[in-house]
C-alpha cells in the first residue's frame, strides 16, 4: 500500500492545475465529441455532463499498470516527489503511456450514449467547456478542502452558463452533483442519469437473445438507489438478465476505489467479485466506467450498458 498522503497530494496538485486528476490538458483529454455527427452545443434543455470519467479510464489503466509494479518496492516512496514535477509534464508523460485503442473504446461509449439520447428524443446539448471532472476522488480520499474548492469552481461555471438540468453518464459524477454539490457548494441542479431518459418501450429487439448478468456499481445500488433504471431499459428491450446474489442495494464492490492507493488490494477485491459474476455463466453488463475497466482487467466478458443497448436501439452509422 502506498502512503495515501503522497497519492492525495499528487492528485490534488493535478486537479488544482489542470482541473482533472491526471494533469492532462482538457483539450487532449476530452476529445470524444470531435467529429460526432449531429452534435449540438446549444440550444438544449439539459447539459450532457460526462464528468470526464469514461475519458479517464485509459489514463487510470496506464497509471495502475505502473503503480502495480511500484507497490511494495523500495521505489514506492519516490511517489512523494512526483508533485514537484510540473503538472503539464506529468500529464504529457501519462498521455504517451495511454493506449489509443483504449481511448477509442471509452470515447465510443460516450458517442453511443449521445446517439441513444438523440434516438429517445431527449432535448440536450453538450459543451466541452462546461464539462469538468467532478472532484469525487478528492472527496473519497478525504481531501475535503481540495474537493470543495474544485466543486465550487465547477458549480459556479455551470451557474454562470445558466445550466439547471444535467444528464450524467456515471454513478460517481451523479452522486457528486446530486448529493455533494448541494451540500458543499450550495448549488443544486436537476440531475438525471442518461438511462432514466431512454425510451425503449415497444422496440423489444432483444427477444430471444442470450441473457446477460448485471453488475451494479455501489453508488447506483446503495448511495443513489438507481439500480432499477438499467433493468427497466433491458426489460423494455426484451433482453433477459440474470441477477447474482449480491446485487442491487447489496451489490459487491469491484475494488475500483482501492486502485489509487493499493493495486494489490484492488486485485484481491476484484477477484472475489469476478468469481461471483463468473458463476452466473453469462456476459456481464455494467453501467460505471470504473467497474467496467476493472472487470475487463479480471478477464471477464463485460460490456457497458450503453454499448449493449446501442447495438439494438441506435446502431452506429457506417
Amino acid at each position: 500500500m502506498f502512503n495515501p498522503t503522497d497519492i492525495i497530494d499528487l492528485l490534488a496538485a493535478n486537479v488544482r492545475q489542470t482541473r482533472n486528476p491526471f494533469g492532462v490538458r482538457p483539450s487532449r483529454f476530452n476529445t470524444w465529441w470531435r467529429g460526432l455527427s449531429g452534435f449540438t452545443r446549444r440550444p438544449g434543455d439539459a447539459l450532457l455532463f460526462t464528468g470526464l470519467m469514461y475519458q479517464a479510464i485509459p489514463y487510470i489503466n496506464a497509471t495502475t499498470r505502473y503503480l502495480e509494479r511500484l507497490e511494495g518496492s523500495s521505489w514506492a516512496g519516490c511517489l512523494r516527489w512526483g508533485r514537484l514535477v510540473p503538472a503539464s509534464l506529468r500529464g504529457r508523460g501519462l498521455s504517451v503511456l495511454t493506449s489509443g485503442a483504449d481511448r477509442k473504446k471509452f470515447n465510443g461509449i460516450l458517442q453511443t450514449i449521445c446517439r441513444l439520447l438523440r434516438q429517445s428524443e431527449v432535448n440536450f446539448f453538450y459543451h466541452p467547456e462546461m464539462d469538468f471532472y467532478s472532484g469525487i476522488l478528492l472527496y473519497d480520499l478525504g481531501d475535503q478542502d481540495g474537493f470543495v474548492r474544485h466543486a465550487r469552481f465547477v458549480a459556479r461555471t455551470l451557474q454562470l452558463h445558466g445550466v439547471r438540468k444535467v444528464i450524467t453518464v456515471d454513478p460517481h459524477t451523479t452522486y457528486a452533483l446530486k448529493e455533494l454539490y448541494p451540500r458543499y457548494t450550495g448549488a443544486s441542479f436537476e440531475v438525471q442519469p442518461y438511462f432514466s431518459l431512454l425510451q425503449c418501450r415497444g422496440s423489444e429487439r432483444g427477444n430471444g437473445k442470450p441473457p446477460v448478468v448485471l453488475h451494479d456499481p455501489c453508488f447506483y445500488g446503495r448511495y443513489l438507489e438507481l439500480s432499477e433504471g438499467p433493468r427497466r431499459v433491458l426489460r423494455d428491450l426484451g433482453l433477459e438478465y440474470v441477477e447474482v446474489r449480491n446485487c442491487g442495494e447489496f451489490t459487491s464492490c469491484c475494488g475500483g476505489p482501492a486502485e489509487s492507493v493499493s493495486p494489490a488490494l484492488n486485485r484481491e477485491i476484484l477477484g472475489r467479485r469476478a468469481a461471483e459474476l463468473k458463476a452466473a455463466a453469462a456476459p456481464v453488463v455494467t453501467f460505471c466506467p470504473i467497474c467496467l475497466a476493472n472487470l475487463l482487467k479480471a478477464g471477464l466478458p463485460v460490456e457497458d450498458l450503453a454499448s449493449l443497448v446501442g447495438r439494438y436501439l441506435a446502431p452506429e452509422e457506417k
Partner: peptide
C-alpha cells in the same frame, strides 16, 4: 491511519 485508506467507501456497512 494508513488502514483508513483501505476502505472502499462501498457503503455496505452504512446500509
Amino acid at each position: 491511519a494508513q488502514d483508513l485508506w483501505r476502505c472502499l467507501h462501498c457503503g455496505l456497512c452504512t446500509r
